[in-house]
Design a protein around this nucleic acid. Structure first.
Length: 893
RNA sequence: GCACGCAUAGUUCAGUCGGCUAGAACGCUGCCUUCACACGGCAGAGGUCACAGGUUCGAGUCCUGUUGCGUGCACCA
């Protein structure tokens, strides 16, 4: 590609639009079950079919894409299965709202069948938007395998599982108190209830004793439930109430006679020590009700309004309206003793965002304890690894205290429960299809259970249902168990734990080996992103402004390990600027001609063929390759981005590229060729290392610089491996060169500092005389004076054993040498002394510290020899350097 | 209440096994349209590693406690 056709700044839009369709068409993302390669599989956490791309998805899917592309380059047969979740409540609510707004119809107007037809229509038209949006991000998903949790195959798996668990006795139907969402009018699982800290009131009511001998004061946060009270409970040891044994209470307003019961559950210290008991509307009261065989009176309907059993005065009232009415009535009756402010936790429906109502009803449950035990063991034993590991504790706590999972939902959108009830005798038959005849009464008439299943009852099967389980497909054989799961810690119970249970139960094997929990994204003020705060940036806009690569890189670069991530759009400048840096390094390369022929393999090059700076960059590249590989295999994405960023920017561009100019702008063709080979070799590796994070620009530049053929891709290039130790040694790309060149850069920096002090224009070339600190330094500096001159912007670099400065001369004291800069008329003796004295003071502080350490006998006797020697060497170096500074100061005096 | 996490430069964060002068980005100061890049370069300023103890030759790092912030779980009506 010609330099002229390359714009000065990188423009990602066209590049990104060009590559994605090519990748997809050429089938680079396809997972082949017949391949001989070791598979590497990821199943996407299926986003809601109603969803649009959020930053959370960007982070999550970028991480998966990094793993997939990394493992593909490492030679694995990759398979990343995408798809969407039917998201029961969310989708049903969304379509209901849509129908209400567009046609003024409710789901009841349409009826179940027609409503479902409309939801499917809606799904076809508007659903799965996010699937298209993910392509914009560059994700290497195997789109031909896209699945939907409500498609035919997955529904089959769901039914199969339901029937199996029922037959094993792990699914049962029971009359229990469950969490009810009055807005969505459905049961919820415990996990779908969010506890919010709320300021409330504690009302103290007087409940008169039936015999007229006084009253008991009860405290409640929920006055409306008193209409369903069937007892008052006190602690058996509470002396205040010992005389109440056998007595009853005449429940005010309702005028129902209810017993006083004695139960350990009651806390004597709280409130008045007496609790009103409403078994149908409180889980604890329900337990007491069961223990004491109390009647259970439901006083509310499914919409949260009071029913007939609440009494004619309250029937039809909303629960919160009724609360006020009951308090007013009690006050009127003179039975309201006092009202206290009370801070407490109120359970809210995750989806409906209204307080949940504990409600007694007939629901289906999964008995999870037997499933949880092996699932806990899989994580504790290390068969499954969590990253970061601390989530294991959270997981363990939940698994050890797990309660049965309420799986029935009073919705229409979802997998219908495969239970059939005989019209004749009421017999329940659980089967994948409507039974032909009742096994008991031989009736042929059945009706299917009206309820559908919790959405998570299909997603927990996702890692194998996407491969058409229970059919024994070759995909299932090849790609299960999957390798890594990337997801948010917020769904560890909803999804991760349950997938582990299902995998072990139905496949007999764990569903994945590693689980990486992503950061939670917050805005700059640390608030969670939410629609209502209007602080959720639209990733598509960000991509349009900065590019997908920039967004991807930035997200990973700024996400701290295992903590929340603070995001703002401006931070995408990090990724954009970095992409631009890479692009311009490529542009620089293009100025200097076509790709070299032997760019990939440098094994013919020996130490003497290479300049110190070439050897240095090859050694640093080795470190970068090792670092990136270790970081990625350990799921340290953030670390990988930081180290590559620094390598590319601070080492490759700031130093190597500048040093290369010394040769490239010269006229030694052989030397030019070698430097270009080293450049091409290093830059091609940089592009490969960065490809998983920044797929578009790396592919573009890999082609532009001729590293890939027309039909090829950087995706199929091998992941870089460090040089073998012998080869690195033969090339002189070793520790010694790294340390020498670091010292050289220190010297150059010192010289630049002098230039800066005297405001020498950056392009003005000056004479530099170097007096090396010792013979090694002298030999090293002699090796490549050209790069020294280039990096110092020197007209002439003289290496001398000593130098008698005369007149106006600046001095730079570095590790390798003292540099003299004859600068006629600009050097200020006082400024010069000041600068040197500052350097002297700094060194002195370190010398004292090191001296103290070494004169400490305990240090010398206890510390490892290596550490002591290091300290001695350091002290010697510091002393040598400070002597040079002092010498110079004397000569200035 | 229980559990987990966090506290390092103005800000957001790195800092591996305890060991060389604690790093980066953004921001800040000065110089520079220089030949890949002003989405840039060069030079620089900026730190009581929350606090108090302890272990150690040596602590940002390990231990104990304190304070502050955050998250998860939990039936206190």
């Amino acid at each position: 590609m010609s330099v002229e056709s390359m714009a000065k700044a990188y423009e990602p839009a066209a590049v990104e639009a060009k590559w994605y369709p090519l990748w997809e068409q050429r089938g680079y993302f396809k997972g082949d079950p017949d391949s001989d390669k070791t598979p590497y599989t990821i199943v996407i956490p299926p986003p809601n079919v109603t969803g649009v791309l959020t930053l959370g998805h960007v982070l999550n899917n970028t991480l998966q894409d990094i793993l997939i592309r990394f493992e593909k380059m490492r030679g694995r047969e990759i398979c990343w299965v995408p798809g969407t979740d039917h998201a029961g409540i969310a989708t049903q609510a969304k379509v209901e709202k849509f129908l209400q707004e567009t046609e003024g119809l409710s789901r009841y107007d349409l009826g179940r069948e027609d409503f479902l037809t409309r939801v499917w229509e809606w799904k076809e038209q508007y659903g799965g938007k996010i699937i298209q949006q993910l392509r914009t991000l560059g994700t290497a998903c195997d789109w031909e395998r896209e699945r939907f949790t409500l498609d035919e195959g997955l529904s089959n798996a769901v039914q199969d599982v339901f029937v199996t668990l029922y037959e094993k006795g792990l699914i049962y139907r029971g009359h229990r108190i469950i969490n009810w969402c009055p807005k969505s009018r459905t049961a919820l699982s415990d996990e779908e209830v969010i506890h919010k800290e709320k300021k409330g009131k504690l009302w103290h009511f007087r409940y008169p004793l039936t015999d007229g001998s006084g009253h008991v004061t009860v405290a409640t946060t929920r006055p409306e439930t008193m209409l369903g009270d069937t007892a008052v409970a006190v602690h058996p040891d509470d002396e205040r109430y010992t005389g109440m044994k056998g007595k009853t209470i005449l429940l005010p307003i309702v005028n129902r006679e209810i017993p006083i019961i004695f139960d350990d559950y009651v806390d004597k210290e709280f409130g008045t020590g007496a609790v009103k008991v409403t078994p149908a509307h409180d889980p604890n009261d329900y337990d007491m009700g069961m223990r004491h065989e109390l009647p259970m009176i439901t006083v509310m309907g499914d919409d949260g309004a009071m029913n007939a059993d609440a009494g004619a005065d309250f029937q039809g009232m909303d629960r919160f309206v009724c609360r006020k009415a009951v308090v007013a009535k009690m006050d009127e009756l003179g039975l309201l003793e006092k009202i206290e402010d009370h801070q407490h936790q109120v359970g809210y429906s995750e989806r409906g965002d209204v307080p949940v109502e504990p409600r007694l009803s007939e629901q289906w449950f999964v008995k999870v304890k037997p499933l949880a035990e092996p699932a806990l063991d899989a994580v504790e034993s290390g068969k499954i690894t969590f990253h970061p590991a601390r989530w294991v504790k959270t997981y363990r706590h939940w698994m050890e205290n797990i309660r049965d999972w309420c799986i029935s939902r009073q919705l229409w959108w979802g997998h219908r429960i495969p239970a059939y009830y005989c019209a004749g005798c009421g017999e329940t038959v659980v089967a994948k299809s409507m039974p032909a005849a009742c096994p008991k009464c031989h009736t042929h008439e059945f009706h299917q259970d009206e309820d559908v299943l919790d959405t998570w009852f299909s997603s927990w099967l996702w890692p194998f249902s996407v491969f058409d389980w229970p059919t024994e497909t070759k995909e299932l054989d090849k790609f299960y168990p999957t390798d890594s799961l990337v997801t948010g810690p917020d769904i560890i119970f909803f999804w991760v734990a349950r997938m582990i249970m299902a995998g072990i139960e139905f496949m007999g094997d764990i569903p994945f080996k590693d689980v990486y929990f992503t950061s939670i994204i917050r805005d700059e003020q640390g608030r969670k992103l939410s629609k209502s705060l209007n602080n959720s940036p639209d990733p598509l806009e960000v991509i349009a402004t900065y590019g997908a690569d920039a967004l991807r890189f930035t997200m990973i670069y700024i996400s701290p390990t295992g903590q929340d991530l603070r995001y703002s759009n401006e931070k995408c400048e990090i990724g954009r600027n970095f992409a631009n840096k890479l692009y311009n390094a490529a542009r620089f390369r293009a100025y200097h001609g076509d790709r070299t022929d032997q760019w990939d393999d440098l094994s013919d090059l020996g130490r003497s063929d290479l300049r110190p700076d070439d050897r240095w960059i090859l050694a640093r590249l080795n470190t970068a390759v090792q670092g990136a590989t270790t970081a990625l295999t350990g799921f340290h994405f953030h670390e990988m981005c930081h180290s590559l960023y620094e390598f590319v920017w601070n080492e490759f561009c700031d130093w190597y590229l500048e040093s290369a100019k010394a040769v490239l702008n010269g006229d030694d063709d052989r030397a030019r060729g070698t430097v270009l080979r080293v450049f091409d070799h290093t830059f091609s590796r940089i592009l490969r290392l960065l490809h998983p994070v920044m797929p578009f620009i790396t592919e573009e530049l890999y082609h532009n610089l001729g590293f890939a053929g027309d039909e090829e891709t950087v995706m199929r290039a091998a992941w870089p491996v460090p040089l073998a130790a012998e080869q690195a040694a033969a090339m002189g790309a070793d520790e010694e060169i790294v340390s020498q060149v670091a010292s050289k850069f220190d010297l150059i920096r010192n010289i630049r500092n002098v230039r800066s002090t005297y405001q020498i224009p950056p392009n003005q070339k000056i004479k530099v005389i170097l007096v090396p600190a010792d013979e090694n330094a002298a030999a090293f500096l002699q090796e490549d004076p050209a790069s020294l001159a280039a990096l110092m912007t020197a007209s002439e670099v003289t290496i001398a054993t000593n130098y008698e400065s005369s007149g106006s001369t600046g001095t730079a004291v570095g590790d390798l040498a003292t540099a003299y800069l004859p600068l006629a008329g600009v050097v200020d003796i006082d400024a010069e002394k000041k600068r040197l004295r500052k350097q002297e003071a700094e060194l002195l502080a370190f010398i004292e510290k090191a001296g103290k350490k070494l004169s400490n006998e305990k240090f010398v006797t206890n510390a490892p020899e290596k550490v002591i020697q290091l300290e001695r060497d350091r002290l010697a170096d510091l002393r040598e350097k400070i002597a040079r500074i002092r010498g110079r100061l004397e000569s200035l005096a």
